[in-house]
Amino acid sequence: MFTIKNYVVAENLEQAYELNQKRSNVVLGGIGWLKMGSRNIQTAIDLSKLGLDKIEEDEESFKIGCMCTLRDMEVNESLNSYFNGAIARALVHIVGVQFRNCATIGGSIYSRFGFSDILTCLLALDTYVELFNGGIIPLAAYKDMYYDRDLLVRIIIKKDARKVSYLTHRMSATDIPVLAVAISKLEGKWQFVLGARPQRAILVDQADGILGQNPTQEEIDALVDYVIKEVKFGTNMRGSKEYRQILAKVLINRGIEEIMGGTHAN
């Protein structure tokens, strides 16, 4: 468990940003992960009074405040009427409803956990992060940036008609995944994201041209070979590198079949 010397409920983002420039200060999300460590926090910065717990929607995008809980995203009907409900499907296995009522999307995305379901899922969508100082940048770029002192203010997901499949393999229902696979298809463009490798999720978007409009099994096999060659898998207590490669084959096949209108369910 961490300790906190001073606790500041931020009155505005400028104040939060200024406070966050000190390395011993921390912005609080849902604290589910933070409490597993033993940091001595000089000043804890609470963003909960800035109205950033909402999901806003306009014609082009969803704008999700960093303090929005994972549960609020999971049960948001409008958000889940897009992308074949992939966002809810990526969230539903995370620990339990009570945990997801605490955990925040800002905390999850800022932390860029290797095991993250939601990072894996959002990388398969047209997703951006809005930083207080750094402006709006693609999530695919943000996820590999170092942990700087900027504030993650919002997640922006562009609306489009892409079809998405989100599949995972877990040792038990609410555990973190052994492997997470998100696949999306927008018109002719396929994207493949592999998370919990166990390293941080990676987007394979150079796979264009391998799959035709109605992929044959040969094309899918070639694609799987390509992905397994491109993506680095590793070994940890949940599974070996070889096991993850076998899982990747299965989940990619299922995901493509699901998007093409097949019947496989995870």
Binding site: Y7, L28, G30, I31, G32, K35, D46, S48, R71, V97, Q98, F99, N101, C102
Partner: peptide, 16 residues
């Protein structure tokens, strides 16, 4: 329950 919603009190600071 915090404002009617189930939460983990082990992962919630009292100040929240």
């Amino acid at each position: 329950h915090l404002e009617g919603k189930p939460v983990l009190s082990c992962s919630t600071l009292t100040v929240k």
